[in-house]
């Protein structure tokens, strides 16, 4: 099963020049399937946590977006209980000009800027809107409880 050149190039660059706070390593037995770790951004409720994700490049990639989900539990209005992520570039705003790197940077940015007006986890979003300080406190607790390596 030949891997498209674009995927090989992207992988090489991810390994050689990783983005700060982001690690992505392909599985030996499936080079379209990556183990990802994103460090919680400074000044966010996720600071200090290492969040595990999995990323898969479907057959149609780059015409279709990568599939990504969190494997570490996280309290965030745009991430649901199964780790699925509500992010426009993973859906209708995907463009083949985007890359694995840009996707992971966008997810990292989503951790810094939760968007409770476009929620995936409704209960979390409501908490965020009604009492942001308290929601952030819960997010910090979850980070400490689940995201410490």
């Amino acid at each position: 099963m030949a891997l498209p050149k674009r995927i090989i190039k992207e992988t090489e660059r991810l390994m050689a020049e990783p983005a700060p706070g982001i690690q992505a390593i392909p599985h030996d037995d499936n080079l379209r399937y990556f183990d990802v770790i994103i460090s919680g951004p400074a000044q966010s409720p996720f600071e200090g946590g290492d969040f595990k994700l999995e990323l898969f490049l479907p057959e149609e990639y780059p015409m279709a977006p990568p599939k990504v989900r969190f494997l570490t539990k996280i309290y965030h209005p745009n991430i649901d209980k199964l780790g699925r992520i509500c992010l426009d570039i993973l859906k209708d705003k995907w463009s083949p000009a985007l890359q694995i790197r840009t996707v992971l940077l966008s997810i990292q940015a989503l951790l810094s800027a939760p968007n409770p007006d476009d929620p995936l986890a409704n209960d979390v979003a409501q908490h965020w809107k009604e009492n942001e300080q308290d929601a952030i406190k819960t997010a910090r607790q979850w980070t400490a409880q689940y995201a410490h390596a």
Binding site: F56, P58, Y61, L82
Partner: peptide, 15 residues
């Protein structure tokens, strides 16, 4: 063909 890993396959089935 790309081999869809377990978890993404189960997410497809769930949806």
């Amino acid at each position: 063909m790309a081999k869809v890993p377990r978890n993404f396959r189960l997410l497809e089935e769930l949806e």
